[in-house]
Design a protein around this nucleic acid. Structure first.
Lengths: 184, 184
DNA sequence: GGTTGACATGTCACTCCTTACATGTCACCT
DNA sequence: AGGTGACATGTAAGGAGTGACATGTCAACC
């Protein structure tokens, strides 16, 4: 089993917090939460749930209306999740189109580079607004004292900091490009 | 052509800066530079170079010793790279194991969560040291006034900021977990 | 009764990426 | 002459991920 695991883990975590759920519900919740850190569509989720069931990490309860299958986490599944969190040092393999653009941007003329950097800043700004709205909604509704009250909260905080970092970086890089082209 | 493109673009950029190079040389340079933002092994690079040649983005010069093929960027290749940088808004699809761990960490007991967060901080620290050494080496050697002097420099700066951000986040999150478990 | 649209689950084809395997060249050492 | 090891280029098998397609249920509305 040298596979990536991450989708499995994400689903185990989500199912732990949600309690027994159907694939459809999981896919919807996934989209609104875990997808910020690990993307997957229903066409990947349904087969993975089936495989996880076959591997004993999940159990299928009664099938509800419209053929809904209700999954829940087995003890093996809990153990798998715990083990991954405690023992697995995450692989650092990056693959970010934004970072690639930032890498290559010096290949452009200064004014073009500034345009690209400004676009990056704008989209970071939009992303930041989205994340801060999410946090505001959390603070208004969620019960942070509950058993899983902080589920996703640290990741949200991290995302906000990283996005702010991108904005600051873009500002400084724009200034740097302009300084260099001014004195050239 | 709804493909990802990113590997193509990375190779075009690297080849633009390196000047005509063999696949082997590109793979080595790739590993030391672009791989920080987009990973790929030689088994992916060789076929991609062949495809890019077939698509007219690259041209093969004389074959050197030991069957070396010397690739160079064609005008079509330059245009492709420019177009991607100027017109392509990078997809925001995240997929980070670190972020996934940060997402799920509240599922653990407080002391376990602290352990995981400390590990994340340590590895961020190591990564930061690596990046700062890279920057020091750049500053000692590189000629930032040269045509491509800043190639990769903005990405390196971004990486350093992001990694510092992770460390700060880890510190604050550890403090938060400890505060919550103390008052619970 | 029929249409619409949200609910619900899946498959298929294709691209992307990783690991391991396979092949052959050339310089240098003994 | 033979061995070693860096150089150099590839292929193959399989897992991961994407987008489009396919199928069927059920409630509500007209």
């Amino acid at each position: 089993m040298l596979q990536c695991m991450s989708l499995r883990i994400a689903l185990l975590g989500l199912l732990t917090v949600s309690g027994p759920s159907s694939g459809y519900d999981l896919a919807k919740k996934f989209e609104k939460s875990v997808a910020h850190v690990w993307q997957a569509g229903h066409s990947q989720i349904y087969p993975e749930l089936a495989k996880m069931t076959a591997d004993g990490l999940l159990a299928v309860g009664a099938e509800g209306a419209r053929g809904r299958k209700i999954y829940s986490v087995t003890p093996d599944g809990q153990a798998e999740l715990r083990r991954w969190l405690l023992d697995h040092s995450p692989s650092t393999t990056t693959r970010s189109e934004t970072a690639l653009q930032s890498f290559l941007v010096p290949l452009l003329e200064p004014d073009e580079a500034v345009t690209v950097l400004r676009r990056m800043k704008t989209s970071a700004q939009a992303h930041l607004a989205e994340l801060e709205e999410l946090r505001a909604a959390r603070n208004a509704i969620a019960d942070p004292a509950g058993r899983w009250g902080m589920f996703g909260a640290y990741a949200l905080d991290l995302g906000i900091r990283q996005t702010r970092g991108v904005m600051e970086w873009a500002d400084d890089s724009i200034a740097d490009v302009e300084r260099r082209s001014g004195t050239a």
